[in-house]
């Protein structure tokens, strides 16, 4: 096998995989505390990328634009939970899921109106340089993506393992009912978790934008591929979801490189479908059915 081609596929695959991993993480966190798989998860990524680019092009200082986009993602997540999910909490799963579909449509629409149809871009965080790994060429921004993802993941795991709120999230993911009885304020927790997943999603969108551009219709791809990552990881553990997301990034890159770039989406969605058909039943039983994450 040609090593440099291999690296040239592997490393960019890891880069997009980072975004899918962050989306997958958001899915799992939200599902664990609310029992709802949030269809708008991918839209947070799109929204973050587009908003940061738009702010920067409008003259807002670079780092401030990034900060504002991340905060906006957090606000969007919290808002979704408070305004749209809290009122349907005790309604059937079916209603809750379709509500998140509606929210996704709204986020797409708002982005289209506010920021236009054209793809937007950000400059690389430290310029437009490239670097070499053996013969593989990579934009320097890749380092930022890897670094930022690692930092975000570390922060999330620190949050889950070392803070009171994080432990409450984990308690909910093991047994929502019992956690409530132990005095966990599930309402507040949901808001926090939706805000966190909105923020990580938006930030993921920001860091990838210098490499792939962002436009209003990009959310669905992030959402589906991140979902595939989460489900490959069993839709239960946050770390497994992260590895699932990275795996999808690699699958996509190798599929494009070794088979055909035009068939890239077909391959990834084909794997998603095949996996769901083969293993989907698993997500209907056991603990996942209890938290509703598979529903």
């Amino acid at each position: 096998m040609d090593l440099s081609l291999f690296l040239q596929l592997l490393l960019p695959g890891l880069t997009t995989g980072c975004v899918y991993a962050l989306v997958a993480l958001g899915y799992v966190l939200c599902a664990n505390v609310s029992g709802v798989v949030n269809f708008a998860q991918g839209e947070f990524v799109m929204f973050g990328g587009v908003l940061a680019s738009w702010l920067f092009l409008g003259g807002v200082p670079f780092w401030l634009a990034i900060l504002l986009a991340t905060l906006a993602g957090a606000a969007l997540g919290a808002l979704q939970e408070v305004v749209t999910l809290a009122p349907v909490r005790h309604r059937p799963q079916f209603i809750q899921i379709t509500t998140t579909v509606g929210v996704a449509v709204v986020i797409r629409g708002i982005t289209l109106i506010a920021f236009g149809k054209d793809p937007l871009s950000l400059p690389g965080f430290s310029g437009e340089g490239i670097f070499f790994v053996l013969d593989a060429v990579l934009p320097v921004q890749s380092l930022w993506v890897w670094g930022a993802t690692a930092a975000l993941l570390l922060a999330t795991f620190f949050f889950l393992r070392r803070t009171e709120t994080g432990r409450a999230v984990r308690a909910c993911s093991i047994n929502l009912q019992a956690a409530r009885l132990m005095g966990v304020n599930a309402e507040r927790l949901r808001i926090v978790v939706f805000a966190v997943s909105g923020a990580t999603g938006a930030l993921a969108g920001v860091i990838i934008t210098p490499i792939v551009l962002s436009s209003w219709d990009a959310g669905i791809a992030y959402g589906l591929k991140g979902f595939l990552g989460a489900i490959l990881g069993g839709f239960r553990s946050a770390s497994a979801a992260v590895f699932g997301g990275l795996g999808i990034g690699l699958l996509e890159a190798f599929g494009a490189g070794y088979i055909s770039s035009g068939w890239k989406d077909f391959i990834v969605y084909g794997v998603l479908l095949a996996y769901l058909l083969a293993r989907g039943g698993v997500f209907l039983r056991g603990r996942i059915a209890q938290t509703g994450a598979g529903h």
Partner: peptide, 22 residues
Amino acid sequence: ILKLRGFVLVMATLAVHLMLIA
């Protein structure tokens, strides 16, 4: 495909659609 339920079914049917488009 219809053995799947809820969100998993959403994703599976979407995957079929997006595969056809691709």
